[in-house]
Design a protein around this nucleic acid. Structure first.
Lengths: 141, 141
DNA sequence: CTATTTAACTTGATAAATGAAAGGATTTGA
DNA sequence: TCAAATCCTTTCATTTATCAAGTTAAATAG
């Protein structure tokens, strides 16, 4: 379905999604139009789900990046899910997982105070285990 | 530092980073040029770290999304870190964390077979606890 | 109170990118 | 072998981005 040129296009767009089609074409040895056609196909096929930006959360005042392993107390997860829907500003991802815990909640907080307050409210609906990110050794793509 | 217009710009770019400056300007009630100026400042300031794409990993054949809590056996983390550097294709993020475990490893695999093989090699360098993502209730921005 | 500076924005001209249409290789299948 | 499909290129009209200059408003200083 995808050839190596498509993979290179995905790589280039991962690095800079605002690149012009002309430039992208040069990088993968195609004309701008051919590159644009390829990209349109990747969109149609659904490999490219969207175009977005990387935001530096520290610069927005979110200094704490945390993962919370969630253990819901009751049989129903609904109270927990309802609660976190009211906490959108702090939530990055809520992964339903198998293994230890029901959910893995990725979140961000401006301060220990806000985190503490969040956990107090949180604990009314579920138990948890907290992991704070010290360093992000992220890879590309 | 950032006003509400800047926040709206970040939101719009998060939703579609390939939007034209003209269109972006219309959305936030500015001319294209003013919008472009704002975006340039957000880049300079470092809030916008880059432009990227959302890739559907399933369409690339990565059907398993997992989080691995890592417990290094030896005092030195180096053997573990060296190992995962050889496994780039499977690694999304390697977060150094406080709390339970030393690292939280986010990764992707094409199949249970590749995951199993990975864990066998992995286990030579560190112990682990595996969580497989069942559903991603991700939020925006 | 007035002059000056600065920041944020608008306008207008030019250069560049985009999108659509037409056409040319190359491959695929009947 | 012929027809269709795929993938790419070229060309051109349209749209967009970019650069420089000018406007406005608010803050600052004399």
């Amino acid at each position: 379905m995808l050839d190596s040129t498509d993979m290179r296009i995905l790589e280039e767009l991962s690095n800079n999604s605002r690149i012009t089609m002309k430039e992208l074409g040069e990088k993968v040895h195609l004309t701008g139009q051919a590159a644009a056609d390829r990209v349109a196909k990747l969109e149609d096929y659904g490999v490219i789900e969207g175009y977005t930006i990387k935001i530096n959360q520290n610069k927005l005042g979110y200094f704490i990046h945390a993962f919370i392993t969630v253990f819901t107390e009751s049989i129903s997860h609904q109270p927990y899910l309802t609660f976190i829907n009211t906490q959108e500003q702090y939530i990055i991802n809520n992964y339903k997982i198998s293994g230890d815990g029901c959910y893995l909640l990725e979140c961000k907080f401006p301060s220990h105070e806000t985190l503490n307050k969040f956990l107090e409210d949180f604990n009314k609906h579920a138990n948890y285990k907290l992991s704070i990110v010290i360093k992000n050794g992220s890879t590309t793509f």
